[in-house]
Amino acid sequence: MPSNQIKIYHNPACGTSRNTLALIRNSGQEPEVIEYLHNPPTQDQLIRMIQQSGLSVREAMRKNVEVYQDLQLEQPHWTDEQLIELMLKYPILINRPFVVTELGVRLCRPSELVLDILSAPQLHPFSKEDGEIIIDQQLKRIK
């Protein structure tokens, strides 16, 4: 990956995803924005992101969506391979936002986790949409 390339698997309807994208842009970098509900990752990309983020397959899943309940995915008999297949079939099951940079991969929940994998500093003070301050007036990280 080129050193300046950042990818965000984004859902514009999600506040956490919007805050994460804004934090990336606040570092002066413009990421590749992948609206994963319309353009899901490949099986290999999804497996690699989950592995590189240090999460289990189950930790990378959204549980508060209808398809998760309907398919009873909380049941322990589901294998990681089956869960990956379902995440690809129903991208809403992929938790978000995943961010990929040259410094690593994170599921950015909460959104400020993206700061751990950005190579450029924040350029301006930053507050989340709900008003929570993340970067103060002295450009110091609060959270």
Rank of each mutant, 00 (worst) to 15 (best):
L88W: 04
L23F: 03
E85W: 02
D80A: 14
P97N: 04
N95W: 00
Q72D: 14
D70G: 13
L71Q: 08
V65T: 07
E32A: 13
P41G: 12
P121Y: 05
N64P: 03
P91C: 09
N4S: 15
E59I: 06
Q82N: 13
C108F: 01
P41K: 00
H124S: 15
Y9E: 06
L113A: 10
P125C: 13
Y68N: 07
I142Y: 04
Y36I: 02
H77K: 15
N11V: 04
I24F: 00
V57R: 05
E59S: 12
V67Y: 04
P40I: 00
P12E: 06
L103F: 06
L113E: 06
L115Y: 02
I94G: 09
R96Y: 03
V57E: 09
Q137D: 13
Y9C: 04
R109T: 09
P2N: 15
L86E: 12
S3G: 13
S127I: 04
I8D: 00
L93Q: 02
D130F: 07
P41C: 07
V105Y: 03
G104I: 03
L88Y: 05
I94L: 07
Y68M: 01
Y90S: 13
L37A: 08
G104Y: 01
Q69T: 14
F126P: 12
P12A: 12
H10S: 08
T16Q: 01
S3K: 07
P125R: 13
N64V: 07
N26V: 13
M87W: 05
I8V: 06
S27E: 06
E35F: 05
I92D: 04
E132N: 10
K7P: 08
I92V: 15
Y9L: 06
E35N: 11
E129R: 05
Q69H: 11
I47Y: 01
E81C: 12
R141V: 13
V105R: 03
E74K: 07
I24N: 04
N4F: 08
N19D: 10
R141Y: 03
V114G: 06
H124Y: 11
E32R: 12
T20Q: 03
K128M: 11
E32N: 14
P110M: 05
G54C: 04
Q72W: 01
G28C: 12
P97Q: 03
L37V: 09
T42F: 00
L88M: 11
E74C: 08
V65R: 00
D80G: 14
L86P: 04
P76Q: 10
T20P: 08
T79H: 05
P121V: 11
R25M: 15
L83K: 05
D116W: 00
H124T: 14
P31N: 10
I47V: 15
S17C: 08
P12D: 06
G15V: 08
E129V: 09
L37M: 07
P31V: 09
R25D: 11
Q122G: 14
Q29K: 14
N39Y: 00
E112S: 12
A60N: 02
A120Q: 11
E74P: 04
R141I: 09
P91N: 06
H10F: 09
P97S: 06
V57N: 10
E85F: 08
I6E: 12
I117E: 03
